[in-house]
Design a protein around this nucleic acid. Structure first.
Length: 481
RNA sequence: GUCCCGUUCGUCUAGUGGCCUAGGACACCAGCCUCUCACGUUGGGAACACGGGUUCGAGUCCCGUACGGGGCGCCA
């Protein structure tokens, strides 16, 4: 009955990053929440670039943000909206407010403002600009003096935001200042632009970080001044670094593309990110389709979360394990250009190693937390003889073991079928006849085949490598007869 | 400083006055499995910030304290 109209219609949400840097974890989660909400409610997800501040505009950043969203598979409707290109609408709104007396020309100079700020600090109060020009006729201003247009904020009463995450938040109007709508160069500021754009784009729900909470109050006042209805707000808590401090670039906050390069899967990152602040009972592993079914703003908590790589890794390892082999292969190949040593591996693949790499994936994906680990684990596939042997593996190469390998080699040469299963049977039998535990045979064998003491099961390794290569690698370390 | 918000295991969280001697996940420790590493599995340690209320009963409601976070730009 008393439900607001907006909640009855299909919602329209947007992600509105400023192009000042790359898409970081916090922004990615905000985008995810918006996208999920749209998907869950049959609404629309829009993208708008908040580039009103030309000094900070950055084409590279815009490209990185779009690239990041695409990688995360968060698709939006239509073309990204450039806020800058809509400046005329923002100005028109400001003029309208000015004409109605809801805004005024302010001739305060930067120096005067700085002075006010210093005084406020000295008095230990917060600066709340209430310009003398609020009630002073513009005719008293010096000729040709530059001016800004300020919103005439109400002096009394309160502005209430019924936030879907924060609850009912009350701001005393006297705490809110007369914010600038149009800069002295005539360009619109963020708070005006957001209101006009969200209105024009039909945005019904604004889901963004809590750092915008006070802006919500100011924006609500502008909506009122313009005679528009205020959208629903949901201010989500911020994500902190593992040390509890704000996740900033200083604290090692990475762009989303860094996570791609570290071998994380987008579905894993989505799963991890959504659980930072949102929950659905005890559920942890939630595929995206299920997220879309379950997601709602109500599930978002109010307290900030810390970013924990270990949990991301655990989730990623799960998604890798359950990822289709072919798909995994393609994803691994796809990130080659952005990983260390990827160039060489790409060349090896081009030279014909891709068949073996594909064959190695089923056993490798069971033990890889990231694509990077998967690729590193496939090192034995890309290596060429004679193999480089690590220290621990070298310790396996005792005279005794080399002699054993020689005997095994002779046995293996007469093997007719070269599959993991038959090799396992053969080698178990061999160990038995030698009165050795399987491990005593498997470890030296692994060292010879992979140059390492850690690898997928040796029998799988042998099948992947094939008969010829396997025998050659064993021969390289077997004692000469 | 001021306004606003937050505080359950190391971390993410479940919990909406009795079902909680607080549950799950990750991490950690120990055992089992085992050709290594993983996986799996069994078990373990580990939290309601503190102090007052309200109530027959409080992790859950109220107040205060402490600590943490966010805002306080002609940035977004």
């Amino acid at each position: 009955m008393s439900q607001k109209q907006t909640s009855l219609k299909a919602p329209v949400v947007r992600f509105a990053p400023s192009p000042t840097g790359f898409l970081h974890i916090g922004g990615a989660r905000t985008a995810l929440f918006n996208w999920l909400y749209a998907k869950a409610k049959g609404g629309t997800f829009l993208l708008r670039i908040e580039d009103t501040d030309r000094a900070r505009n950055n084409e590279e950043a815009i490209a990185a943000i779009i690239d990041g969203l695409k990688w995360l598979e968060l698709d939006w409707t239509g073309e990204p909206v450039s806020q800058f290109e809509r400046a005329e609408y923002h100005k028109a709104a400001a003029e309208k407010l000015l004409g109605e007396g809801a805004a005024y020309r302010c001739f305060l100079t930067q120096a005067e403002l700085d002075q006010m700020r210093i005084e406020a600090e000295a008095n230990k109060t917060t600066l709340r600009v209430r310009s003398p020009w609020r009630d002073r006729p513009a005719s008293e201003a010096p000729d040709n003096a530059p001016f800004t247009i300020r919103y005439k904020a109400p002096d009394e009463g309160e502005t209430v935001i019924d936030d879907h995450v924060q609850g009912r938040v009350v701001f005393q109007n006297k705490e809110l200042d007369d914010l600038i709508l149009l800069r002295s160069d005539g360009s619109p500021t963020y708070n005006l632009a957001v209101v006009v754009d969200d209105h024009d784009m039909g945005v019904t729900h604004v889901i963004r970080g809590v750092d915008h909470l006070t802006n919500a109050a100011r924006q609500a006042q502008i909506y009122k001044g313009l005679g528009w209805s205020v959208p629903e707000f949901a201010h989500v808590p911020l994500i902190h670094g593992s040390d509890g401090a704000k996740l900033s670039k200083r604290h090692g906050a990475l762009g989303i593309e860094a996570y791609r390069a570290m071998g994380y899967l987008p579905e894993a990152l989505r799963n991890y990110l959504v659980r930072l602040g949102w929950s659905h009972g005890d559920d942890e592993i939630i595929p995206t389709a299920q997220l879309i079914e379950w997601f709602d703003i109500d599930g978002i908590g109010k307290s900030p979360a810390r970013f924990d790589v270990a949990k991301l890794e655990a989730l990623n390892s799960h998604y890798i394990r359950h990822c289709d082999d072919k798909e995994l292969f393609e994803r691994a190949v796809h990130i080659m250009p952005e990983i260390p040593g990827g160039h060489d591996i790409a060349e090896a693949l081009a030279r014909g190693a891709s068949g073996a790499f594909r064959a190695a994936i089923p056993s490798l994906k069971e033990r890889s937390k990231t694509l990077l680990e998967l690729i590193a684990g496939a090192g034995y596939v890309f290596a060429s003889r004679p193999l480089a042997i690590d220290d621990k593996a070298a310790k396996q190469m005792t005279d005794e073991n080399r002699a054993m390998l020689a005997e095994l080699l002779a046995k293996l040469k007469s093997t007719s079928t070269w599959t993991a299963a038959s090799l396992e049977a053969d080698i178990r039998k061999f160990a038995d006849t030698q009165d050795l535990k399987l491990g005593k045979v498997a470890q030296p064998l692994r060292a010879a085949l992979t140059g390492s003491t850690v690898s997928p099961p040796v029998f799988d390794v042998m099948e992947v490598l094939g008969e010829e290569e396997s025998l050659a690698r064993i021969a390289d370390h077997a004692a000469r007869a």
